[in-house]
Computed example of a mutant assay.
Amino acid sequence: MGLRVGVAGIGKLGREHVRVFKGFDEVDFIGCYDLIEERALQASKDFGATTFSTVQELIDAVDAVSVVVPSTKHAEVAVAALEAGKDVFLEKPIASDVRAAERIVDATQRHQRILQMGHIERFNSAFEAAFPFIQDPSFIEIHRLAPFAARGIDVSVATDLMIHDLDILLLLLKRWPEDIRAKGAGILTTGPDIINARLEFANGCVANLTSSRVSVEPMRKIRVFSPNRYLSIDLFRRRVKRYEKGEKFKEGVARLKELEGSPGVIDLSEFLTIEEFETHGDEPLAKELKTFCRSVLTRKPPPVTGEDGLNALKLAEAVLDKIERESTTL
């Protein structure tokens, strides 16, 4: 018998979890639960999964559960599973507020369970390929734009979309920002649907983040500027561009100064190492769920912990607090 896994929450993303788990040889997929019974029944029909009438019945039948319910229900379902001695994969955000997130982290520690957060961009092949080249960033710019969808509107765009990029920032810089400036606007919901945030860190790095869920065209792009390197990471198309100072870079700069004010042109590619490539590999969701199963089976800590999810949520709330405080002073 393999690792017994179930999925709680069978919306669009929950169905993808079922599909992926059903393809793992090491997993004995037990079944699924959804508050809307028709969803669970449809998943049962489409994937050959058992349907449970309550989330507790599902929890009792498995070794590990993937929680893909609305974020306002994350603490209720995740804590129930953890207290029952089950390991949990939890989609982002960890919870709808910090207090609920702290309950989840506390339950994980008290019951010594595995809790992995679903910050999927860490498993994007473009980010994985670029990560080793990200050293001492001076400036980071991230755009995450998406067309409007009914999914996720129970939370603001900060905890729906921007939280991916806040998690990446904390991973790269391993410190809390010293200063946060942010503006946001609600377009189609009562909370901010588009946010721009500027975060300044003690090491001198500045990060500029823009997240929108009311855009026409999707974009998920990270640009990282370092003293000797520039990286453009297209998470949507999984492409990476790397520009690095070559051995003759100083010579190129000197020639540019000589040509200042003249019509002469220099091709800087002569003085830069330029690499552009597409990345391939398994889909990010399959990689992160495979990693979760491996952590459960080996009892080794997952790469994205509950503490990581909590810190990303705290930073998202700090951005939202800054927006609210600045709007009240206008």
Rank of each mutant, 00 (worst) to 15 (best):
1 M>R: 12
1 M>A: 11
1 M>N: 13
1 M>P: 11
3 L>K: 08
5 V>G: 02
6 G>W: 04
8 A>M: 07
12 K>E: 13
14 G>Y: 05
15 R>K: 14
15 R>W: 07
17 H>D: 11
20 V>S: 10
21 F>C: 09
24 F>I: 11
25 D>Y: 07
31 G>M: 05
35 L>R: 00
39 R>I: 04
41 L>R: 15
41 L>V: 04
42 Q>P: 08
42 Q>G: 03
42 Q>Y: 10
43 A>Y: 03
46 D>K: 04
47 F>Q: 02
54 T>R: 01
60 D>H: 06
62 V>N: 00
64 A>E: 05
67 V>P: 00
67 V>E: 00
72 T>Q: 03
72 T>K: 02
75 A>C: 03
76 E>Y: 07
80 A>R: 03
89 F>H: 09
90 L>G: 04
98 V>H: 03
100 A>T: 01
101 A>G: 10
111 H>V: 00
114 I>T: 08
115 L>T: 07
116 Q>G: 04
125 S>F: 12
126 A>L: 14
127 F>R: 00
130 A>Q: 10
132 P>D: 13
136 D>W: 13
137 P>V: 14
138 S>L: 15
140 I>A: 01
144 R>L: 15
146 A>F: 13
147 P>H: 05
149 A>D: 10
149 A>R: 10
152 G>Y: 10
153 I>H: 03
153 I>V: 12
154 D>C: 01
154 D>N: 09
165 D>R: 01
169 L>N: 02
169 L>G: 01
171 L>D: 15
173 L>H: 06
174 K>S: 12
175 R>Q: 15
180 I>N: 02
181 R>V: 10
184 G>T: 05
185 A>H: 10
188 L>C: 01
188 L>K: 13
188 L>V: 04
189 T>I: 01
190 T>K: 01
194 I>S: 03
196 N>E: 13
200 E>S: 08
200 E>V: 04
204 G>D: 02
205 C>W: 01
206 V>C: 11
209 L>A: 06
211 S>V: 06
212 S>V: 07
212 S>T: 14
213 R>M: 00
215 S>N: 06
215 S>C: 02
216 V>F: 11
220 R>S: 13
221 K>C: 14
223 R>G: 05
223 R>N: 10
224 V>A: 06
224 V>Q: 00
225 F>V: 09
227 P>I: 09
227 P>V: 14
229 R>D: 11
232 S>H: 08
233 I>L: 12
244 E>L: 07
246 G>E: 11
247 E>I: 12
250 K>L: 14
253 V>Y: 09
255 R>N: 08
256 L>W: 02
257 K>G: 09
261 G>M: 08
263 P>Q: 04
268 L>P: 01
271 F>I: 00
275 E>S: 14
278 E>K: 09
278 E>N: 13
282 D>G: 15
289 L>I: 08
289 L>G: 02
290 K>A: 12
295 S>I: 08
298 T>M: 05
299 R>M: 09
302 P>W: 02
321 D>Y: 06
327 S>T: 11
327 S>L: 06
328 T>N: 02
